[in-house]
Design a protein around this nucleic acid. Structure first.
Length: 392
DNA sequence: TTGGAGTCAATAGG
DNA sequence: CCTATTGACTCCAA
């Protein structure tokens, strides 16, 4: 299949590390009748023990999320089973979420309890000898139901029996309402559908540039960006939330890959071909970045000092220092971010550190993002009274 | 309130 | 059909 260009060192496909969960010795507080506040998912999960998924998640040993997703993808493709079916019936997630999860699994130690749930379900599914068979059955039933519906005018749903039950209908769909919209709304449908904002490439570029200047823009900056780009403030805010989150995730992935094929030659991200020549940067806005605090009681911010002319690179561009690694779950919490003057107490100092090495800027950019994140928190903490322990 | 984590769900490509 | 991307939302913790 069109898998990655870089063959990550395949670890033994054997991932059978399962069976550590399950009733076993861990005695749970007996009945613990109290129903989980959560557990909205009606997914009964293939029989298996009588534990709830959350209980299993809680006592599960560390799982290799990368190996699990790799195996799941393999099984699904080998059997022509789609993500939608798998997601809705096995994980209780939608197709898009499954795609994301399978393509970019976060390392186990970075996952919250909630985030681990899908992986535990996947592991459980993988260990079920009849997993494929069951899923195929469901697929057949769906098709049958579909055909029926298509034919006869009325189609009622059945509850699918068979061991697994199926999908749920994620409720959700809470009514929206909200705000206005740009001069652009005219839906014939009785329901006003929000048009779903689609940012233009130049808008994304501008946002990325803004992000490099300030990963955590102040409300004022956000306001400025929004008006300059003609976007709603909430859109800009959401964009920053999402971008930060996604950059962070990519860092995790590299962490995993690096761990997998340590020795080696990480090689450089292929990056696509250059593309056009424009790149004159600042085609539209530029300027900005003003934000002058009259009172100046704030900290001073100095972003990149040297304009340099190293701007290019597909994704966006950035010349940031590189720090290696991030954090380890156990052991040294700070095994990284060296190469940077510890004494550096401001974002400007760290971020502005030049780094002559025009290679793999993508990687560097991500690490820079992480660094910025750390810096942001440090500054925030410093601003507060007692910054007990920081954990990166 | 702000930011992070997880997701949803619309939509762009195959 | 299916999968990948991504703006927006919900829930939660600080």
């Amino acid at each position: 299949a069109p898998e990655s260009p870089l063959s990550s060192a395949e670890e033994s496909v054997k991932s059978q590390q399962e069976e550590q969960m399950c009733r076993a010795s861990i005695q749970e507080p007996s009945e613990t009748s109290e129903s989980q506040p959560g557990t909205p998912l009606p997914l009964p999960l293939p029989g298996h023990s009588g534990l709830s998924i959350q209980e299993m998640v809680a006592m599960s040993a560390e799982l290799d999320t990368y190996a699990i997703t790799k195996k799941v993808k393999e099984v699904l493709t080998d059997n022509n089973l789609g993500q939608r079916l798998f997601g809705e019936s096995i994980l209780g997630l939608t197709q898009g979420s499954v795609s994301d999860l399978l393509a970019r699994p976060k390392p186990w130690h970075k996952l919250s309890l909630k985030g681990r749930e899908p992986f535990v379900r996947m592991q459980l599914w993988l260990s079920d000898p009849r997993n494929v068979e069951k899923l195929m059955d469901m697929k057949r039933m769906e098709k049958k139901a579909y055909m029926k519906r298509r034919h006869s005018s009325i189609g009622e749903s059945h509850s699918l029996e068979s061991g697994l039950s199926g999908s749920d209908l994620t409720q959700g769909a809470s009514p929206q309402n909200l705000s206005q919209q740009q001069p652009q709304q005219q839906q014939q449908q009785p329901q006003l559908k929000k048009p779903r904002v689609v940012l233009a490439p130049e808008e994304k570029e501008a946002l990325k540039r803004a992000y490099q200047q300030k990963p955590y823009p102040s409300p004022k900056t956000i306001e400025e960006l929004a008006s300059q780009l003609n976007l709603k403030t909430s859109t800009v805010i959401n964009w920053f939330h999402n971008y930060r989150s996604r950059i962070r995730r990519e860092l995790f992935i590299e962490e995993i890959q690096a761990a997998a094929g340590e020795g080696g030659s990480p090689s450089a991200r292929p990056g696509k071909s250059g593309g056009e020549g424009d790149n004159s940067c600042d085609g539209t806005e530029s300027d900005s970045t003003a934000e002058g605090r009259p009172s100046g009681s704030e900290e001073r911010k100095g972003f990149l000092e040297s304009p340099s002319l190293s701007h290019r690179d597909e994704e966006a561009e950035a010349e940031f220092p590189s720090a290696s690694g991030t954090s380890r779950p156990r052991g040294g919490i700070i095994d990284s971010l060296f190469g940077i003057p510890e004494s550096a107490s401001s974002a400007a100092t760290a971020v502005a550190t030049p780094c002559r090495n025009p290679k793999d800027s993508s990687l560097r950019k991500k690490k820079a993002a992480n660094l910025n994140n750390i810096i942001h928190r440090l500054e925030k903490a410093a601003n507060r009274d007692e910054p007990h322990e920081w954990e990166f």
